[in-house]
C-alpha cells in the first residue's frame, strides 16, 4: 500500500505532464518522500488498480493507474477534464504536489496466465487502464503469447497514446488495429466504431478479451463478442461508480452486492450477470 494510514493521502510530486489530446493529460508521478515502514514504492501495484487522487481544495477522484508496474520509480495517471477534481488537476504542472491513496481495487487477471494470448479492446480513454496491462505483457513478452489490440476513438484528435499505439504495432507478437468513427482528412486507417474491428478477432473466441471504454461501447462490444462465441468468463471489463473511501466501507460504490472499489473494478461478464448489473 502506498500510504500507511488508510485514509491519509501520501504526497506525490508531478514529474512530468504530457498533453495527450485537447482534454486529456498524462501525469508521471513519484512520491515526495522515500518509502518507510510499510508504505511501498511507486511500482507496487498491479495492472487494473486505481488510486484516489487528492487535489487540495478540490477533493478526491479515483483514477486508474495507466502505467505498468514493470516501470520503476514512478507511475502514470491519464486524466480527462470532466469534473471538479479533474479540472483542478488540469491546472497543476510539473513540480506540483498532490495526494495519493491506494493502490485500490483488484487487477486484470493476466499475471498468472503465462503462455496465453490476450485481446484488448478499448474505446476512447478506455485505453488508459488497459495500457497498464498491455505494457506489462509487452515488458514480459516471453511469458505470454500473441496480443491483439483493437482501439477506436471518435476522431483522430481523440486518439490517446497515439505514439504508443504506433510503438506497439511495430512489436512482434502484437497486432494493433485502430479505427475512428467517421472519415477524416489525413486518416487512411479503418473507419467505423470499434465493434467493426471485431471481425479481425473472430477466430480467437477462446482468448480472454479485456474491454474498456464508454458504457455504450462496452455494451455493444460485449454483445458482439458473445454473439461471436466468447464465453461470459472470458470477457473482462471494468465497472465504475462514484467512490469515496476506496476501501470497501462507505457503500458509495456498492452495486449488485459487491464493492466496485474492492471486489472490482475488474469483473468478468459472468460476474456482472450474477450481480444483475446492466452493462
Amino acid at each position: 500500500m502506498f500510504n500507511t494510514n488508510l485514509f491519509i493521502p501520501r504526497a506525490a510530486i508531478i514529474e512530468n505532464v504530457q498533453n495527450l489530446t485537447y482534454d486529456t493529460r498524462l501525469y508521471r508521478l513519484r512520491f515526495k518522500n522515500k518509502s518507510k515502514g510499510n508504505s511501498s514504492a511507486e511500482n507496487d501495484y498491479r495492472p487494473g488498480q486505481f488510486v484516489q487522487v487528492s487535489v487540495l481544495g478540490a477533493g478526491e477522484a479515483p483514477i486508474s493507474i495507466c502505467s505498468s508496474p514493470s516501470q520503476k520509480g514512478c507511475f502514470e495517471l491519464c486524466v480527462r477534464d470532466v469534473g471538479l477534481v479533474t479540472r483542478a488537476l488540469a491546472s497543476l504542472k510539473k513540480g506540483d504536489e498532490l495526494g495519493i491513496r491506494g493502490p485500490y481495487g483488484n487487477s486484470f487477471p493476466i499475471e498468472e496466465l503465462h503462455g496465453r494470448d490476450f485481446i484488448f479492446i478499448a474505446g476512447g480513454i478506455g485505453l488508459a487502464p488497459l495500457r497498464s496491462a498491455i505494457n506489462y505483457v509487452v515488458d514480459n513478452k516471453n511469458d505470454y503469447g500473441r496480443v491483439t489490440i483493437l482501439y477506436g476513438a471518435r476522431t483522430k484528435e481523440d486518439i490517446v497514446f497515439a505514439s504508443e499505439l504506433d510503438k506497439w504495432s511495430r512489436q512482434d507478437k502484437l497486432d494493433v488495429f485502430t479505427t475512428i468513427d467517421h472519415p477524416q482528412d489525413g486518416w487512411t486507417g479503418n473507419v467505423g466504431v470499434v465493434t467493426t474491428l471485431i471481425d479481425k478477432i473472430k477466430n480467437q473466441s477462446k482468448v480472454k478479451a479485456f474491454v474498456c471504454g464508454p458504457p455504450i461501447m462496452i455494451h455493444f462490444t460485449i454483445k458482439e463478442l458473445l454473439d461471436a462465441g466468447w464465453a461470459q468468463q472470458d470477457i473482462i471489463t471494468t465497472l465504475e461508480r462514484h467512490m469515496k473511501c476506496g476501501v470497501g466501507k462507505c457503500g458509495h460504490c456498492y452495486i449488485g452486492g459487491k464493492y466496485v472499489c474492492t471486489d472490482g473494478p475488474v469483473f468478468t461478464y459472468a460476474q456482472i450477470n450474477e450481480m444483475a448489473v446492466e452493462v
Binding site: 486524466v79 470532466v82 469534473g83 476512447g124 480513454i125 488508459a128 471504454g213 464508454p214 458504457p215 465504475e240
Partner: peptide, 9 residues
C-alpha cells in the same frame, strides 16, 4: 466520469 458514464445522471 471520463468515459461519459454517470450512474446517477
Amino acid at each position: 466520469m471520463a468515459g461519459g458514464n454517470n450512474p446517477v445522471r
